[in-house]
Every structure is written in structure tokens, then in C-alpha cells.
Nucleic acid binder design. Structure first.
Lengths: 202, 202
DNA sequence: CGGATTATATGACGATTATCATATCAACTG
DNA sequence: CAGTTGATATGATAATCGTCATATAATCCG
């Protein structure tokens, strides 16, 4: 069937959107082409009209995810002074909401242990995302006048990722909450962003 | 073929050992029953004489891994004073050696993002391991006279896990090294275990 | 209005998977 | 030495997967 101009592009975008969710929910190997198409109301055959391969689809979805997340963070801290912006980012990232919604969360958290087994094209896309996150974290730390931004940025990133990843990995809700809260407080304390500290700058 | 008494048990242990390595290398869904058996020099059919299911095999391997790792850590810090013991644990965990050898490393690092998709039996086994790690970390922090051991233990665990997991996820060696070193220094600094600080207590 | 175009559907292929029924065959038992 | 037992092998099944060749049908063009 042939549809109006731009229909295919619309479908493509819808597919990428769905793939982006499924990718984070089920992992790169866990989500199936047929399932993606079905979720979009289509059948499996049409997939290869939109993507060269499953791998290409995953890579595109991953790029889309990183781009969207970066935008979402920007919007969330719009207008906030640097230290509050930083604290807000950490609060959002290391939160129960993020933990409980992997499908629209950070792929570094949801896919980290899958990456070593992925093909180079996917790994490279992932790398670009991580690099970008490290770079903006450096900027934010520097803007907040926190010393050693250069070496602190990767440390903070790995700490927030570890916190959410671990709190998701664990099945026991109490343990999960404990991990999350303790990690968040620890990270903010290290950066001098504890709630009390922050008030003084408000 | 029938072999000497105890032959089956020997085979079983060998299978668990191999499963333990493959589990961490390929993930719970990635490793195949047939591959495990072949690696042991057997054929796929005999698998169910040793395990009730693949799931049961994974759970047993996971238990074995946690037990062995805890022993290995104990041996590594044997005789060291508390603060040095703590520093040593962090140095071992957040190391290139650990990053580059997932097959005999910590499953919390190698399997964290796979766990949310696993069946309850496997998740519970994983939980027990994490709980045990948190508990011994609390003891070690307290022994080193570090304040807030209760809330710091989960924070430290998630930080070291995040550091190694992220440094593995990333394909770029330079970035990976940067993440690893920065995280390790950050964690030790937070605990007052920087090399310089440590010397003062030596 | 009719034929070309093209997005999607149907259906199939081969590979891989966990699982299990059954066969084999060596060692122990008598 | 014969027969039973038990550990492993063979082979099959059904399910799932990525991939692709081909069919269909709706829209656009002339």
C-alpha cells in the first residue's frame, strides 16, 4: 500500500521511538524485530524497508536516546544557578523515578553490562554518548566552582550510574532504596551539594 | 558409560566452574547450554543429569561466584590493618586487571543490567550476594574508624561497581582508563584513603 | 481512469535455542 | 564372567530469531 508523502518518515520515527524504549527495557539482544514492528501496528516484514539491519536500528535508537536525554536535562535545569543545577541533575538521575522507569531513562545505566558484547557500531555510538556526558559534566562542575572538575566529572558519572544500575539490579525494594538514597547523599556530600550546604548559597 | 565413584560430582563441579566463567562473559541469556557442555568436553544431552534447568545452573554458578570472591578478598587483605585493607580492596576492585577480566571478576559489575530481566530465583541469589557485600563493607568501614559506615557502605559499593562497569562498557581505551583512575581516586579521597593520607597511618 | 510506484504484508529460510526421550556403553555387582 | 546400573551421547522437538524474496494494495502520475 502506498500512503501520503512523508508517511514512511513518520513510521520510521515511530519505529525509532519504540525501539528506543524497548532497547532500554529488554537490552540489545532481548528485543525482537517482530515485537518492535508489532508494537507499531505493523508486521515484521517491513522492518528492512526502514533499517539496514537490527544492529543499525539499535544504533539509531541509541543516538536518538542520547540526544533526547541531553535536551531533557537542559530543560530541567533551565535558569537554575550552577550549584543548584548540579544538585538537580543528581537528584533527578539518582531517583526512584529514574530507577523505576528504565524505558525512558539513561542507557548508560540500563545497558552498561550489555555493551561489552555488542558489535563495534553500537559500542561507538555508546561511546559518543558517554563522552558527551563526561564533557558536559566537566562544564557543570567548573561552572559550580568545584575544584578538580576534570577528574571529578568521570568519578561523578560512574557514581550516579552505579547507584541507579545497582538499585535496579537488586530485587529487594528496601535494599534498593537504601542503595539509592545512600549513594545520592554520598555524591552530593562529596560535591558540597548537601541540602544544608546548598541553602547557604540560595 | 559408568565411571568411578565420585566422577559425576567431579563433572558437576567442573560444569559449575565453567558456567561461572561463561555467565560473567556472556551474560545469563548469552551463554548456551550446549556451549557449556562442549567446553567441558561433553555433549549437550547430559546437561539435565546435572541441573534441573538452565536457570538452576545459573543460580548455582552465581552462588559459587559470590562465595569464591568473598574468600579471595579475605585472602588478599589478610593481616593488613583496617585502613590499608580497605584501600587494597578498592585498588583491586577498581583496577584495569578487574576491568579486563570479567570472566573471573565480580558479577555485580558484569551482570547488573541483566538482572532486571532475570527470573526471581536468579535475582534472589544475586540479592544475597549484594547484601553480603554491603554488610562486610559496613564492617570494614567501621573497623577503619570511618564515620557513617552505615550509609557510606552502599554508596561506596555502588561507586566501585559503577566505575568498573562503565569502564568496561566504553570501547575507547583512553576514556576507559580515565574513568577508572578518576573514580578510584575519587572514592579513596572521599574515604580519606588517598595514598598520601594512608602513609601517615602506616 | 489506468498503470507505475512503493509502503507494508505474507510466508519462508536457516540458524540457534532449551528441553527431553532414548540409546549406548563402561564399570560395578554378584 | 554376565547382568545391572548409571553417566554420558545421540537425535529429535518445538520455539524463537534475523533476514529476505515475493505478493499485495493503496496512492500518485499521466
Amino acid at each position: 500500500m502506498r500512503y501520503d508523502g512523508g508517511h514512511k518518515q513518520e513510521t520510521h520515527e515511530k519505529l525509532v521511538k519504540i525501539a528506543a524504549r524497548m532497547l532500554r527495557e529488554k537490552g540489545p539482544d532481548g528485543f525482537a524485530v517482530a515485537e518492535l514492528m508489532q508494537e507499531a501496528g505493523l508486521t515484521h516484514g517491513g522492518f528492512y524497508a526502514h533499517f539496514e539491519s537490527k544492529e543499525a536500528c539499535v544504533a539509531e535508537a541509541l543516538r536518538e536516546i542520547f540526544a533526547q536525554l541531553s535536551q531533557r536535562v537542559e530543560r530541567a535545569i533551565e535558569g537554575l544557578p550552577p550549584r543548584h543545577a548540579l544538585a538537580t541533575i543528581i537528584d533527578i538521575y539518582v531517583s526512584q523515578r529514574h530507577r523505576d522507569n528504565p524505558a525512558d531513562g539513561c542507557p548508560v545505566t540500563s545497558l552498561n553490562s550489555d555493551m561489552p558484547r555488542q558489535p563495534p557500531a553500537i559500542r561507538d555510538t555508546f561511546d559518543k554518548g558517554v563522552k558527551s556526558m563526561v564533557a558536559t559534566m566537566k562544564k557543570r562542575l567548573a561552572a559550580a566552582h568545584i575544584d578538580d572538575a576534570e577528574s571529578l566529572a568521570p568519578a561523578v558519572l560512574s557514581a550516579v550510574v552505579g547507584a541507579v544500575a545497582l538499585s535496579r539490579a537488586v530485587n529487594d525494594k528496601t535494599l534498593s532504596d537504601e542503595l539509592l538514597v545512600a549513594a545520592r547523599n554520598g555524591i552530593k556530600a562529596r560535591l558540597g551539594l548537601s541540602d544544608a550546604t546548598l541553602e547557604a548559597y540560595a
